[in-house]
Design a protein around this nucleic acid. Structure first.
Lengths: 219, 219
DNA sequence: ATGATTGGATAGTGTCACTCTCCTATCGAT
DNA sequence: ATCGATAGGAGAGTGACACTATCCAATCAT
């Protein structure tokens, strides 16, 4: 398949594909001559993953490169690659906040939840940092947020993780499990957030309007 | 309080505060002369909310303006304002994908989950659109994703929403409930996502390393 | 042989969230 | 009153980012 066909089948412009090739998000095609390259189904698949990461998952090009590099790194075992790949996913939480006086409290809260859930605590983990940032912001605005309050969230998160890893094992061949793990981690994120927003809207409207709607049938 | 003091107490540069004032994210200070204005605690609080929305929540300046306008809009009742405010929050899902052949399927899946949960379906809702986009991306990558599979996510989302609305009612005075709803919606998002990532890392490492760790105590 | 196409390289575009510079008006101290 | 310092407002500028448009030489199909 030539670049033009890859573009047609993926819906991504040739210019953008070239950009991804240049940025190392997409492995180069198999050179068939000095000015022509050939792309296969694997390229198409990878391209769709890249698009999903960037457009749906909001991952930056640089971070996507890191994630994919980890997925492809044959020198690591599966666990390390998965860890590296997921760790390379960002949370887009920019400032660890240097002069943040809530930070120590937030750090304590974050550690406490994880301890109470029996999780290993890895302070360097980006997800851990993101958690600290978010808790810190909550505290700064005066909302209560302690280990106790976060526990239910952590339990829900465990259930999600369990479910998603089961999906990965069930629906992906071993060679594509890493890719599946990355894709599901990133793509179920907006799913979860959207459903949460929808649930909030639903609850709020029932609550404030007195639930006079006829078509409700909870549980 | 002068601009300089507001800046000092919030940790936000005067240049940025001026920018927020210009963009209408922060109401103007009380003019004390033609070139001086006075800011109060309410300004400080609002500024912290703006920072939380933008930095932690990843909300754009334009969207933040919309959210805050809805929060402040005295011409609407509380329900409408909350709906408008939360709807104005983005999901940063850019492309509803015009030429997307998975879109109709995704739409059907999204509607099905919501119906099965007894929620009202509002096709125009940004959260609904985001859900469709995400499901569509999942399908395009070949991962199974139907109403059945999303149901557990929806149920979890309901529990989250319930919990968060309870928090809003419990910890915020009626006049600040809207602000609390917005803040909690946005700030619990990264909390949830971080915990999910941490849970995934935990599960994955246990799974792949054979769970030889001594300190695990699941369930 | 030749016109179109391909792939690669380079530079440009639009957006966004600030940030810098400048300017005038006022404030506080003398 | 005066004078340097500072406040606040307006506009342009900056840097990051994700593309995107333009060239160009080398092929490929005919």
């Amino acid at each position: 398949m030539r670049l033009a066909e890859l573009s047609r089948r993926s819906g991504v412009s040739t210019a953008t594909i070239k950009f991804y090739l240049r940025e190392g998000l997409l492995p180069p095609g198999h050179r068939v001559s000095s000015t022509q390259a050939d792309y296969d189904e694997e390229h198409l698949r990878r391209l769709q993953l890249v698009r999903a990461l960037i457009q749906v998952g909001g991952v930056s090009v640089a971070d996507a490169r890191g994630v994919l590099a980890a997925v492809d790194d044959a020198s690591l075992d599966q666990l390390s690659r998965m860890g590296t790949a997921v760790a390379a996913l960002p949370q887009a939480l920019p400032a660890p906040a240097d002069d943040d006086e809530e930070a120590p409290t937030a750090e304590r809260v974050a550690v406490e939840v994880q301890r109470r859930l029996g999780w290993r605590v890895v302070p360097g983990n980006p997800a851990h940092q993101a958690l600290v940032s978010a808790v810190s912001a909550l505290l700064r605005l005066g909302y209560p947020c302690d280990g106790e309050a976060l526990l239910p969230y952590g339990e829900l998160a465990e259930r999600l993780a369990e479910h998603e890893l089961a999906l990965v094992e069930e629906f992906a061949a071993p060679t594509t499990q890493l890719e599946a793990a990355v894709a599901l981690t990133v793509l179920y994120e907006p799913v979860l957030l959207s459903l949460r927003r929808l649930a909030q809207a639903e609850r709020a409207s029932r609550l404030l309007s007195g639930g006079e709607d006829p078509d409700e049938a909870p549980e």
